[in-house]
Each structure stands twice: as structure tokens, then as C-alpha cells.
Design a protein around this nucleic acid. Sequence first.
DNA 1: ATATCTTCCTGGGGGC
DNA 2: TGCCCCCAGGAAGATA
Length: 308
Amino acid sequence: MPELPEVEVVRAGLDKWVKGRTLETVTVRDPRSVRRHIDGVSDFEETLRGCTVSGVVRRGKFLWLELSGLEVSAALVAHLGMSGQLLVEERTAPDEKHLKVRFGLEQRAGMPDELRFIDQRIFGGMFLSPLVPTADALPGGQGSEHPLIPQAASHISRDVLDPHRDDEQLYRALRRRTTQLKRALLDQELIAGVGNIYADEALWQAKLSGLRNTATIRRNEVARLNEALIDVMRRALEAGGTSFDSLYVNVNGASGYFSRSLNAYGREGKACPRCAANGLDSVIRRDPFMGRSSYTCPTCQPRPRRVR
DNA sequence: ATATCTTCCTGGGGGC
DNA sequence: TGCCCCCAGGAAGATA
């Protein structure tokens, strides 16, 4: 499930293999994968044909290709949803079962000539979105390496690894809301890039229960949480980053590396590693959460006395 | 206005 | 063996 680190691995791969190249052909194999493109499948194909990819940018889980050669300024947004992949391959490679969109790339020595969007569950998609100024560009251009952002991603906040963000901002964002801490972490408008897996991991690392009320969270707790978020994302990125040089970027492979080092997520019934190291006997539990699951250690992530 | 619920999808796995 | 149902997940849109 691609969260920030997995999407960053994809971004880096596209930056290496696709940036600077022209999209010579565009073929949509499943219209559902471009349903967010409001002008329809034909417009998607025709508008993009002949464009050159001038940059590859990410914020949170949103990824977009900056383009030259368009009449109206827009970016090609890709969201991987939960099963999306972007692969760079030879045009002659057999079609993947869930191949949705293919982009024939201008020939270049030693580089594969096709970009493919593959998506089993179709929660993801690709579409053109007009570029608008970021609402949070900093004065003096600082932090405005990408002062324009696709409209479709303009509502989300700076992401966990954005250098122009700090724990004070996170504290204020959390305090503005009255909701459970984990819900807030998953809200891309408060902090971008966190999904269910890394939310559980960061909360575990910070020794915080996701049931805590954001309205009563303390500064030092938010500082701990922010540090944990950054650390978890960085470690996942390092684990997935090994595939930067491979000929294609495999999202599932990228997240797979890190799954070996998860401490809480998916570990129901297994010992809490921190408690075990401290000679305590505590077991990770799974609880229903918004129609899915939360994994926590009941000992080192104490539940608030009163849960809203 | 804010907070939460529902919907979009498919395939793997459990239960019968 | 096979069928059915549930579940996983992100985020837009609907609803409270």
C-alpha cells in the first residue's frame, strides 16, 4: 500500500527514467483509471500526446509530471491509490493483467521505451489537473521550489518529509481539531503522506495511543510524534530506495522491504518489541478502526481514560 | 462549518 | 472442490 515512502521511490524512478522524454503515444486501456480526467478518455490521450516530461514532483501521496508542450498549463497527476504501480518497461514486454494506461516514450539509448500505469483495484488513477499557486508558499520564495501545484492536490498540507514544516505547525494543526489522533494523522489536510501502516508505526514509536483526543495533546507529545513520523518514513525510504537503479519501479517490492521491520502494524498476537526488550510481556492487539484495523501495544501506548 | 460515513474496486482467504 | 462473503486500502463526495 503506497504511502509517502513508496510514492517517493516511484518519483525518484520516474525522475531518472522518464524526465526529459516525450510521450509519443498515449493509450488508455481502462477508462476507469482516468475517470478523474473530466474531459474524457480521448481528450486525455490527445492532449498528452507529444508532451515532454519536464519534472517529477510529489507531495504526500500525490505524484505529478510537469509537462512542456501543453497549450494550457497543467500537470499529469498520478495517484496510486492502494494498488497502483508505474513501471518503465520495453514496449514489447507482455501486458500485465491490470495494465490500465500506457505511454510510449521517445527512444533513448539504454532506456526502456514505455511507461505503464498498472492498478488492480482502481482506487488510483491518472488525470490532467490545472496548476495553481500553492496556498502555503513561503515568503521570499523559500520552500517554493514548486510554487505551482495541481488543483487536485492543492488542498493537502506539506508532507512528513517536507523540510519547510516543523512540530509546532503539526501541534497547531492538531489542536485546531477535535478528533482522535489517528484520524487526524490520516487527514491529508493536516499532514500529508501518512496512511494506515505508517500511522500505526509512528504512534507506536512515539508511545501514543491513536485514540487520544487531538484537543488535549501536549507539545512534547507532538514533538515525539513528529520525530517518529519522520524517522519511520526515512527508514522506509531507505529500505525501498534500493530499487532506484533497477529498470523499473515496483511499488509492491518497495513496501515489501520495509514490511520486515514493522513493529506494530499487522503484528496482532505477537510480542511488542519494545516491551520485550524491557523484559515486559505485552502483545500487539488489533482493534477495528474506520472499517479497517489499528495495531497497538496496550502497555506502552496507553489508551486515554475517556475515549470520545 | 466541522466531523464522520459511504463509495469506488478486485482478488485473496476463510468459512461452510 | 467450489462458492460466497468479507476484507484491505486512499480520498472524494455525501451526510450528519
